[in-house]
Amino acid sequence: MARSERVLLGLVLGLLILVAGKASWIEAKAWVAQALIARAWERTLAEGGHHPPWPWADTWPVARLTDNNGKDLYILESASGQALAFGPGRMAATGGGWVVAGHRDTHFRFLEGLEKDDRLSLQKADGGWTRYRVAATKVADTRRDSLQPPEDPQALALVTCYPFDASAAGGPLRYVVRMEPVARAESVVSAETLSGRGYPGR
C-alpha cells in the first residue's frame, strides 16, 4: 500500500475512533451512572439526607421516575450540564411544581413516545409514590417563551430539547410535558388544568 494511502486510511480510522469513542463515552456516562445513582437512592430512602452517587459528585438523587414497564430513571438535583450527563435534573425551584430537565437523546428520549393520559410514577425521598398522568405536551420556543414552574406545587414538568431527531445540539426549541397527579386530575377536569397554564401558548 502506498504511503499516501496508508496516511489517508489512518486518518479516517483515527477520526472514526475519536468520534465513536466520544459517542460511547456519552452513552456510557448516561447509563452506567444510573446504576451508581440507583445505589445512592437506596441509601437516601434508608437513611434520608443527601447521598452523592460517587464521592466527588456535586449532585445527588432526589426522586425516582418509573414508567409503566417498570423502567427506572433517577432524577438528580441541579440541571447543570455536569449533572444532566448522568441523569435528568431537577431545576432550581422557586415555588410551584418541579421542573425536571433531561437530554432528549439519552434519558428523556422516551418523552417522544408519551401521549396524553399516559401514566408515570414518581417516588420522592420520603419513599412515597405518586401516580402522574400526562396532562399536556407542548413545544416551547426559548427565544420567546419563559420557563416557569407549574403553578400547582403537585404538578411536574418534564423538559427536553426538540425536535427529538435534530442532528445538532443547541437548538432553540424545547418539548415540555406537563404531568399531574392522577387522583386530582381525574376528579377535577377544569379548563385551566387542560390548557396547561404556566406555559405561554404558541
Binding site: E5, A23, R104, D105, T106, S167
Partner: peptide
C-alpha cells in the same frame, strides 16, 4: 432554559459515515 441534548446521535451518524468512508477507501486501494 436547560441545554438538553448531548448531540450523541450526530456523533453516531458521523461515526457511520467515517466507517463507510474507510471501507470505500480500502476497496478503492
Amino acid at each position: 432554559w436547560p441545554a438538553t441534548a448531548t448531540g450523541v446521535d450526530r456523533l453516531w451518524r458521523q461515526a457511520v459515515v467515517l466507517a463507510l468512508t474507510g471501507l470505500l477507501l480500502i476497496l478503492v486501494f
